[in-house]
Design a protein around this nucleic acid. Structure first.
Lengths: 191, 191
DNA sequence: ACCATTTTTTGATTTACATCAAAAGTATTC
DNA sequence: GAATACTTTTGATGTAAATCAAAAAATGGT
């Protein structure tokens, strides 16, 4: 247990000792093997996970049965199907581990209860959403709109320098929304 | 003043009478003419606007000086450069009115103060972000990834059936991330 | 009503990337 | 260590949409 949950929580927004204790009690430490599913389509997302080690991909399966990655997270990141969580609707996507991973989980219902109970925790949650979620998704949206495949790949590389050792070419290509042939050609400098 | 601010606020999350009064006092009613800028690049976004009438576009200006729309909002929608707001950094985008418009504005600093002061208002803000912001941006992201130009146009039409009378073809094309020639051909059924 | 400007449409050509097909390279298992 | 299954690369061809160029249509000002 290298990364302490308390540190992660306090780095988002400082909570009073008493609230922190109660919040910590609502998290579970979990370990899952590579390929484990945190979420499958049709199920509602009921947790927020704070990954401390590992890698995960989010993907949709289209009508032709093709898996299309929409995102992945590595190491210290927050994981959830925010759309399913917020709308309280069944998820349309899958969340699958790409490495043996460790994480802390909190149930969304517990989170809701804590938000209602503690003003400080509602402020913590606002910071979480603003910093970890909105900032991230905004960046991704502008990248998708303005950058071509090669530029998106280069940006991804600068964000995760070791990604080529950890995530397969096919998975990265799917995330970039290009074919693996195209990504292979980008790597070879042919594009 | 057809749409009452009180209704908008209470439709997001019900506030106690006393908090509501204080919140209402922090909003200003504003009217601006077509082409007015709510935000220009380099300035920090300092307000959240609740539009009650009108239309607005968000756009970036790229290195070649070309304006690229990223979003637009019509009638009852929440307006802000969330990225600039949240990161407290200068905006990279412009927000410009496409019609004479009416709206209510609250300063982000006032919002922060109210969030710190009233637990109920922090819960209101969480709902605002979850429902109006996250749900919307998530949808937009999946549309961009999975739908082609024609499908995105059809989805836009079903969302804003009167859009062709209110927003020019060039502006819609820019929002769809295609050229106006392509949109013209889509409309003519040639694609 | 006319001229100037902006918006939309049409046509020809180019381009980035997809698709299809197959070979080469790497892991995994017995 | 050969057999099997994945993963990555290479080549040929196809396609959606961009770009370039210009005409047609609509809008606005005097």
């Amino acid at each position: 247990m290298q990364v302490k949950l308390e540190e992660i929580i306090q780095s988002i927004y400082l909570l009073p000792e008493q609230v922190l204790e109660e919040v910590l009690g609502n998290f579970k430490h979990l370990e899952y093997p590579k390929n484990h599913y945190l979420l499958k389509p049709g199920k509602s997302c009921k947790h927020i996970w704070f990954m401390t080690k590992g890698a995960v991909r989010y993907y949709y399966t289209n009508e032709q049965g093709k898996e299309m990655n929409t995102w992945f997270s590595m190491d210290r990141q927050v994981i959830a199907d925010t759309s399913s969580l917020v709308k309280k609707e069944p998820s349309e996507e899958s969340i699958q581990l790409l490495e043996d991973s460790e994480m802390y989980a909190i149930e969304y219902t517990s989170l809701q209860t804590l938000i209602q109970k503690h003003h400080a925790f509602s402020l913590w949650y606002i910071k979480l959403v603003e910093l970890y979620y909105i900032a991230q998704i905004e960046d991704r949206l502008t990248d998708l709109q303005f950058l071509d495949a090669k530029q998106r790949y280069q940006k991804l590389l600068s964000l995760y320098p070791d990604i080529t050792n950890r995530i397969s070419l096919g998975n990265i290509a799917s995330y970039l929304n290009i074919t693996q042939e195209t990504l292979s050609r980008i790597r070879a400098g042919k594009i």
